[in-house]
Computed example of a mutant assay.
Amino acid sequence: MTTVSACLIVKDEAQNLPRCLASLQGVVDEIIVVDTGSTDDSCRIAESFGARVHLFAWRNDFSAARNAALEQASGDWILSLDADEELEENSRGQLLRELVSSARADGFYLTVRNLQPPGELTPWLDMQILRLFRHLPGVVFEGAIHEQVTPSLLRAGGNIQTGSLILLHYGYQLKEAQGKSRAHRNLELLQEALKITPDDPYLQYQLGATLKSLNLNEEARTVLEKALMRASDLSADVLAGTYMRLAQIYLMDDAFDSVMKNALACLHIEPDNIPALYAAALASYSLGKKKEAYTFFERLAARPEISEQDLSNIRQVMASIQTDFHVDS
């Protein structure tokens, strides 16, 4: 029978681990937890769920820790996830088994559903990330931060397909990681990584996203624009995320033409990207293109993720445009 090892790296994740590990019970054949220096009950909690815990001295390198977990795993397949994630309920059980048992692929992009903090326009943003892959020699994580296994799998001739599993990610709802601001922790690691590979567009994208989360918008814009200079080296979802964030930054500066340029580029890749639709709607309205704005608001209103309050506000704006310009409903 095809076996699956779930691999995690943790540090002071006692708050998140029970939810994560409970979602794996009866789903995978083993759980490998590499602890990088917890001072809370993370190790005890992991062991209570039947995980094999291994201690690893942290050296500011996420790939090194994840690869230590791969070395301990015995499964035919690896499911890589974080303590602040869980396997979505409908993705448990036979769905995972069927995916790996009948697979002609060597890896699967899974949907990582990034749950957003309260007050955001959309409750989640999805990204496709390689999280399920065959346990093959030489297939390892690379990069000190925002580590990826995709490059090594592709170099090994691996075939990657899109899987139907969903991982729920709660990290953006949490302000701290191991007692420290997640954004500030990531900022330090990204800056160090870019000293080694200063022209890496993926790291530039991640740095830009981190700077934006810290409201350092001018610095974020500069870095994101630099990432676009090597757009062909970025995956579609990362490229869409770059354009989306630039549209949001330009919107705060009332640079509406630049908003439209970036929002439309994002929507060309991801037609239902809610932040990009919202930016395009507001920019069109501000540029006096209210019929065009109506179309974007209409697309927003059709998205099931929109909250009732936001939907009500969008419909009020649409009604106002209809009144002023006699837009057909």
Rank of each mutant, 00 (worst) to 15 (best):
M252K: 15
N60C: 03
A209C: 14
L130T: 11
Q316V: 05
R299V: 13
N273K: 11
Q161C: 11
S74P: 10
M260G: 04
L167H: 12
R315C: 00
T295M: 11
D61A: 12
A14T: 13
A220T: 07
I129L: 13
Q206R: 15
D200E: 03
T122F: 04
Q322E: 04
Q116P: 13
G163M: 09
A105I: 08
E142C: 02
D82V: 13
A73Q: 12
E219Y: 05
L311G: 14
V327G: 04
K175C: 07
A46F: 12
D310S: 14
V34S: 05
D257E: 06
A83W: 10
N90K: 10
P271V: 11
L153R: 02
A64W: 00
Y170F: 15
L234V: 04
D237P: 12
E225C: 08
I314C: 00
A255N: 14
G50K: 05
E219N: 15
D106W: 04
L8W: 08
E176D: 14
E71L: 12
M244S: 13
R303I: 06
K212G: 08
A279Y: 05
V27H: 09
E86Y: 14
S307N: 06
L154G: 06
W58F: 10
E270D: 12
V4R: 08
P137S: 04
E147H: 14
G37T: 09
L287G: 05
S307L: 02
S164T: 13
A177K: 08
R185G: 06
A263V: 02
A65F: 03
A156D: 00
A281C: 00
K289G: 11
V139W: 01
V327F: 01
A68G: 14
R230P: 01
I160Q: 00
M318Q: 01
H169S: 15
G75R: 06
A22R: 15
Q322C: 01
K291Q: 09
S286Q: 09
L300K: 02
H135E: 00
Q25C: 03
P198C: 08
V238S: 07
T36G: 08
E89L: 14
I196M: 02
E188D: 06
R155K: 12
K290R: 13
R52V: 09
G157V: 04
T295E: 13
D41R: 09
T295I: 11
